[in-house]
């Protein structure tokens, strides 16, 4: 039975990863996804140890096979709705906190509706990208990287656009009183802690710290404003990169 423990081939591994991505982006239930991926992993391992390839198992078209599985599984629309709601609520709490530290909590109607629309557009585009990546055969790493870069840049560009639009078009503005600010900040922290506990990750707070602390320190040293901006951006993104790399290593060790 030792042979059974052999690692799966690259092709099988990438098929299973793509399958998972495909099912997630089609709104299937997490538990059901885990069950079928594990079952197929077991099957592939046994088949490979007997000299079969992933193509023998799933047929000529992985996309068609994934669709076959997906069609039989229950789509959990509520699961999707939950994810979207959490992203929007989390994002809102996150921006309120960063704004509160910079000392201004006031939003125009345009900012509020615009942000929600950008969130929805981003989620939709990420979902489409996942579906595309998981079902396209032999997508080069370069292409995949380009796609993710575009998807990553999209909300940033949209937010910059929103900022300009907000200056051009005046819409009613909501201000928070001192008491209101305290309440909403406490509420935001509470929401983020709750979500972090639920997701079992403190990534939100690490990101928050990386966004806020560099600004705070650099504000207190005497350098030119231009250098300040570069320095704070560099520390923030450098920190995020290091954190992600560290996390990636940790996850690989677990597997």
């Amino acid at each position: 039975m030792e042979t059974m423990k052999r690692a799966l081939s690259k092709e099988s591994q990438s098929f299973l990863e793509n399958l998972r991505l495909y099912l997630i982006s089609n709104g299937k239930d997490d538990e059901e996804i885990n069950a079928i991926v594990e079952e197929l992993e077991d099957h592939l391992m046994e088949a490979e140890s007997r000299g079969k390839t992933v193509d023998d198992i799933i047929g000529r078209s992985p996309k068609q096979y994934m669709k076959q599985l997906s069609d039989e599984m229950v789509t959990n629309k509520r699961e999707w709705f939950k994810h979207i709601l959490m992203i929007i609520v989390g994002f809102t709490a996150f921006s309120i906190l960063t704004d509160a530290i910079n000392g201004h909590i006031s939003y125009s109607t345009m900012e509020i509706t615009g942000s929600i629309i950008i969130c929805l557009v981003s989620i939709f585009s990420i979902r489409k990208a996942f579906q595309y990546v998981s079902t396209t055969n032999f997508l080069s790493i370069k292409k995949e990287f380009t796609l993710y870069t575009i998807i990553g840049l999209l909300p940033i560009i949209l937010f910059i656009g929103l900022t300009y639009l907000d200056r051009l078009v005046k819409t009613p503005i909501f201000y928070f009183s001192d008491m209101g600010t305290i309440i909403i900040v406490v509420l935001s922290i509470g929401i983020l802690i709750g979500m972090s506990l639920w997701a079992k990750t403190w990534v939100v707070f690490i990101m928050l710290a990386l966004l806020i602390i560099p600004d705070f320190i650099i504000d207190h040293i005497d350098v030119q404003p231009g250098i300040k901006l570069v320095l704070s951006t560099l520390i923030t993104f450098g920190g995020i990169t290091i954190y992600l790399m560290f996390n990636h290593k940790k996850m690989q060790k677990q597997v």
Partner: peptide
């Protein structure tokens, strides 16, 4: 004549 993996969508349905 059919690929082994075909049984899984069927099994999921039969379970449902």
């Amino acid at each position: 004549s059919f690929s082994e993996g075909t049984i899984y969508p069927l099994l999921i349905r039969m379970q449902k």
